[in-house]
Simulated scan of single mutants.
Amino acid sequence: MRLALVGNWPRPYGGVAVHVAALARAARARGVDVRVLDIGRGDHSGDGVRPARGALRYAAALGGAAAEGRLLHVHTSGANVKSWLVALAASRARRGAAPLGVLTLHSGSAPAWLRGGPARRALAAAACAGFGRILAVNDEIAAALGASGVPRARIAVVPPYSPALLEPRRPPPGLAAFRTSHVPLLAAALPPGRIYGADLLLPAFRALRARHPRAGLVAFGEGTEALTGDAVLGLGELDHPAALAVLEAADVFARPTRADGDAVTVREALALGRAVVASTVGHRPAGCLLFPPGDAAALAARLEDAVAGAPPAARPRDDDPFDAIFAVYRVLWTRARGAPAEAAAPAR
């Protein structure tokens, strides 16, 4: 099987980039010939990764992958016109007897964007028509696609998580000393943008610290190095092993987002046995302490609940969602060659 993954590649280390990198590792481990077309800001090249940012380079990279008969798997947000044009171009790139591709939509903002007008829904339906399977990371995205005219039978809900994401940890400088002097310790991924809820978490943390003077907060993500204070450690952007080390060191992981798909960091924190406080947006796995999005007071109360409670047991999944993805690949690859195709693994 020959595969081309289209999406962001770390660095930066966003959820989509981490997912694509883990999926590429899993493909190689399964003996799949995989290439990555990096359409993200990193603009990486080498080791099976080809830079594909910008219309001309993307067209050239798509053409090269299509000429090799690769199965294209596009990872995008679905939350803006550019995202859907990326998907539309890939859906039209297939040549001859090459297999139909796969499209995964990751952003919790996609449903609201699709509700923005019939032209948006028509663009989404046109892009989806050229793929063999559409994967949504939560039920809300799947429902929005169905309302846009994408046949529900062609949509599957598959989480973007896999146990393969829990690679060996590598603590960043300063974490161990900060952990020793701060109890309880909170962690949060706070990239730029109001959607991630830094404006909610910081006052909620101050309220928590009024009751727990030794409490600390470790924040990571682009721009967090600017966060200051004797109880806040801003680490900036971290590679994935370092981010996992932060999750593992913390007592509580906070996810105060105003929109979400199915946050990889939430699932990672739960798998590492950490308490998770998260807003009620997107899909939240069982075991999270939830609060209404945008409510800093409710967030503060839930943080207090998390600190007061016993740490949860680790919650490893009984299944690996990557198995469902590779089952989809096998069906499409086999079908393109005219052989009977096995049934794809069921969705979540």
Rank of each mutant, 00 (worst) to 15 (best):
M1W: 03
L3N: 12
V6E: 07
G15K: 03
A17Y: 10
A26H: 03
R30M: 03
L37R: 02
I39G: 14
G40D: 13
G40K: 10
S45R: 15
P51F: 12
A59T: 15
L62Y: 10
G64A: 05
A65H: 05
V74K: 01
A79H: 15
R92W: 08
R95D: 08
P111V: 07
A112N: 12
R115P: 01
G117P: 13
R120I: 10
A125M: 01
C128V: 06
G132A: 06
A142E: 03
L145E: 04
A147D: 10
A147N: 09
G149S: 07
R152C: 08
R152F: 06
R154I: 08
A156G: 13
V158I: 15
P160K: 05
S162E: 00
L166T: 01
L166S: 01
P168D: 01
G174I: 00
A176K: 08
A177E: 14
R179E: 02
V183G: 12
P191W: 01
G193S: 01
L202R: 06
A207I: 12
A210S: 05
R214F: 04
G216E: 02
G216R: 10
F220M: 05
T224F: 03
A226P: 02
T228Y: 07
G229A: 06
L235M: 09
G236V: 04
E237V: 03
L238P: 06
H240I: 00
A245E: 09
D251R: 15
R258Y: 10
D262R: 11
V264Q: 02
V266I: 11
E268K: 07
L270F: 04
A275V: 02
S279N: 05
S279F: 07
T280Q: 15
P292A: 07
D295N: 08
L303E: 03
P311K: 11
R315V: 10
R317D: 11
T334K: 00
E342N: 05
A343L: 12
A344V: 15
